[in-house]
Write a protein that binds this DNA or RNA. Structure first.
Lengths: 208, 208, 208, 208
DNA sequence: TATGAATGAGCTTTCATTCAT
DNA sequence: AATGAATGAAAGCTCATTCAT
């Protein structure tokens, strides 16, 4: 029971911190404020996390894990390249409504502010995804669904780039505003989804 | 020691600051350190810039202006949508070699850390580009070069998204590493350029 | 080292700060120095006081409260104008031995250096005293003890002026030295008290 | 001609600085601001005055000299104690209208903010006045005009105290406000003068 | 074990003073 | 001789981290 409370509290801390980090970034966020918002003492945070950065990375891991699950589910269900892409784009749009902060953490870590080893982090976060995407593209290529002039890895890279920008455009203030400049306020997400998928599929497709 | 600050020196401060901001972000950067690296006193920075943030935004403006010129030149020379895109992609690749820091500033401002008004900044930076890209796509669409199911603004948005990711992938540590995961070290930039252009053009093109 | 701050310590901070402010004024005093002299960290001062000025005004309030009590006691015990004046003069002389610093704070606030709203401060500090003194003079006047050509408020004002200068002459370096110039070192305080009272009472008294 | 200009400029610097010091005190005043207001460069101030404090004391000397002249004139013209006092009170009231700043400098130096040797300053400023006042009171005492129970030096001291408070009440913000609390806004200076003189003369006078 | 007050390094910023021009 | 830009020490203040309770 006591243990249970602790686990819940841990999750609460993580969620609160993710929110704050996503909103203000690593430096403008403060441990005190996170503690207060979480209803715990500062000390207890230091019980679980060695320092502010450790908490930041724990939030990142937490976010990425959750994100990964959702994206994996979307990818796993898919029987074709197009299905996978549609699934990922859709999942991204749906997920963004609930968990802006997770996407924001993702953006946060791509910036230099934390001073962490970018290579290490990138490897931890991107390797799996990269392998999956590249694999699926390769498989599709072997079926002749991808123009043979393309390097499958590059196609996977372009696809992931577009997906990444979709993430940011749905969650981070700057990117949200930027999307509005292009598409106006109150973007039609259904249309966005459809046109993005179409753009990608045609970009990839074997030339007739 | 008490030398009057030459124009050279003023530029140096800006470059050094841009470098540091690009590397560490707004908060981990310190005026002291920028002053030391620039070989000037702390005070002189405050002579030219009201505070740390003002210096940050001056660096951003400086970067964006320089970047804008290069991209404008590439866009202006172009006689067709494909030419423009090729020009922009190429300019981006060439420019990244000289001015990583400028692209990094760009990424820096898209993060939440500065606390600045994201809407205001986005408008200042993205509006012009968005209008140009959308305009060119519309023109191409009117010539029947773009599939008529597309919203030209959306196509322009996708294109800019890919370009943005190219910027980051060529300059920011995290994105560099991420690109390596997909494409290996020592990316063949010529190939990247060619395939990216091809991907976009086929993505857009009118369905036969 | 990480001892919780006792009430004792809080008082010590206030006393030390009062001492330093009284000695050096607001600007030459430094939080660092006050912290060191109090044997506390800088941070703890900011825990209790929002900023340097807040500490300054807390010291002022503390001093004025203490001073007020003493003077009120002296005034309350009195059954006549003369008793009150004698009591106040005496209290002032006795109190100055223990609490020079409080009088110095008083003088400090009358100078322009703090930049605070002089009107507001004066009202906070002087209103009550002014009312009491004026009241007592009026009452004495109604008994025919004050020459009827006088405005009671003015008499109260003159009296308070003399009392104020007595405060300063007993506590502030400049005024101490000035008093020595007039009266030599080692002023006979008994005589001073007697002659000041006599001077005032005869100044006020009804002309025969 | 050039010399003349310099003298004028010197006076201008002194006046401007006196104004600023009187208004803000030593520390909140800035050499840069004084230079700008005087229309001279910072360097030229350091040509004439070793440092900020030297300028401050030059202003003080300038003020005190001017004040001294006025008061001496008032005292010299007088043929009796009462005449002298009336003259001094009147001069003070008249002078305050033109030269608030001089009186403010006077108050400024009595505070601890400069860190200068209070004894040295007090001696320089007060000795002469003290001697004159004490002398005049003694002379009056020898004519039997002063009650013989008084120490003439003490009477001179009380008188100077009242005069000093009059200075401050006519020029320094805090004291101005304080006087308003006692006497209301728009003090009748003629009445003030008359009642103060009466208060003093009766305070001193031989008991019948 | 959890607390949160205390710590103090380190930041941004100011401005008296210097000195090359 | 006059200028005013450059200097840099020193201040106020914050907040991640510690640790007595």
């Amino acid at each position: 029971m006591n243990q249970k409370l602790t686990e819940e509290k841990q999750r609460l801390i993580l969620e609160t911190a993710t929110e704050e980090f996503g909103e203000k970034g690593l430096f403008r966020s403060s441990i005190r404020s996170i503690a207060k918002k979480s209803g715990v003492s500062v000390g207890v945070i230091y019980k679980y996390y060695a320092d502010k950065e450790a908490l930041f990375f724990a939030c990142l891991d937490h976010s990425m894990e959750s994100l990964s699950e959702v994206l994996s589910a979307a990818a796993d269900e898919a029987s074709s390249l197009e299905d996978m892409m549609r699934g990922l784009i859709h999942a991204c749009i749906v997920y963004a409504r609930e968990h802006e902060a997770y996407f924001r953490m993702y953006h946060s870590i791509t910036s230099a502010e934390s001073g962490a080893d970018a290579g290490e982090i990138a490897r931890r976060i991107e390797s799996e995804t990269a392998a999956v995407y590249t694999g699926v593209v390769k498989k599709a290529a072997s079926k002749g669904l991808v123009d043979k002039n393309y390097d499958p890895a590059m196609i996977a890279f372009f696809f992931d780039n577009l997906l990444m920008m979709l993430h940011f455009s749905l969650s981070c203030d700057y990117y949200k505003n930027r999307m509005s400049i292009y598409l106006g306020d109150g973007v039609d997400e259904g249309l966005l989804e459809k046109q993005l998928l179409s753009f990608i599929m045609h970009g990839i497709a074997k030339r007739s």
